[in-house]
């Protein structure tokens, strides 16, 4: 078997790979997951199923991933360190693998103070990098404690990196650390500041990290000028250039303009050496993904 998942297959084939994002509902509704899965199916290699993103309780990533898989959409299970210690994480990952999930994104996780249970106690027994190391070991048949297991889980392991966070000079080395720790692919934070992204990629290439891990550039369509401003102000490193904010503000159809900008960014980052794919994040706007893919000339998927 030359590949563990469709995503791995496309990346290894050298084709430009695309992942999307599926946000599970704040309810027990399987139907919503299925609907979103149907919407994305065929427009991407796989879709990330977020794990209580921004610390808001949602239907679990693994369960939603299985629901999506049943609809034909390959999931990327997300696992954060906020809510589970190494015992809970390993147990859930064994389960996910047993249920057929093959892509895994390892994250530290957003702090609970952002979410809807700010009074909760966090766990943070580990962080994204130690999680990667642990998962790599698990896939090789070892628990974190070193104990051997009879049947190892199977995952195409990924991680995220934010090229726009500080200290900037430590961001490319950190990507290399993640690759070293076991990340076979990296999805980046949403890119609007293309110059900075290019500079980061230059540093990544200097370290040779792009040859050790597949890098998927994060893009997202803006919905409105207000959203753009909000993100610029509140999301770390999300420096949306004024030019885009103006275009959104002046647009007759802001949504169409947002998609247009997203396509432009996608085309720009696609041309950057070392970028192997894109991660299209249409947050609570999954239906925008087909249009973006269409306009970017990325259809049909291989």
């Amino acid at each position: 078997m030359s590949h563990r998942s469709n995503l791995e297959r496309v990346l290894k084939s050298g084709e430009f790979a695309v992942t999307a994002e599926l946000g599970p509902p704040k309810s027990a509704s399987a139907e919503i997951v299925k609907e979103k899965a149907r919407m994305l199916e065929g427009y991407c290699e796989a879709a990330n199923i977020t794990d209580c993103q921004t610390a808001i309780v949602r239907l679990s990533s693994i369960a939603a991933g299985v629901l999506a898989q049943n609809e034909g959409l390959e999931p990327v299970i997300q696992m954060t360190c906020r809510d589970r210690n190494r015992i809970g994480i390993q147990a859930d990952l064994l389960g996910a693998s047993a249920l057929g999930a093959r892509n895994l994104l390892c994250l530290t996780g957003d702090h609970q103070s952002f979410g809807n249970h700010p009074k909760s106690k966090n766990v943070f027994d580990m962080d994204s990098i130690s999680l990667l190391k642990m998962v790599k070991g698990m896939c090789e048949g070892r628990f974190e404690c070193g104990e051997e297991m009879k049947e190892a889980p199977t995952f195409f392991i990924g991680a995220a990196e934010n090229p726009f966070a500080d200290p900037f000079e430590f961001r490319a080395p950190r990507l290399a650390m993640k690759a070293e720790a076991g990340a076979e692919f990296i999805q980046t934070q949403i890119i609007y500041n293309i110059d900075k992204f290019k500079e980061w990629m230059r540093q990544v290439r200097e370290l040779g990290a792009h040859e050790k891990t597949y890098i998927l550039a994060g893009v997202a369509p803006l919905k409105s000028a207000g959203m753009a401003k909000y993100m610029k102000k509140n999301v770390p490193g999300m420096d949306v250039p004024d030019e885009y904010i103006e275009r959104m503000a002046n647009a007759a159809d802001p949504k169409a303009e947002g998609i247009q900008i997203c396509v432009e960014v996608l085309e720009e980052v696609r041309a950057v050496e070392g970028v192997s794919g894109a991660h299209v994040m249409a947050i609570e706007w999954e239906e925008a993904v087909p249009e973006i893919m269409e306009k970017a000339g990325l259809l049909p998927r291989p």
């Binding site: 530290t108 957003d110 702090h111 580990m126 962080d127 994204s128 990098i129 130690s130 995220a160 990196e161 934010n162 966070a165 500080d166 200290p167 430590f170 650390m177 934070q189 770390p236 490193g237």
Partner: peptide, 8 residues
Amino acid sequence: MNGPCGGS
């Protein structure tokens, strides 16, 4: 133990 995270 492996920081900083993307929120810095």
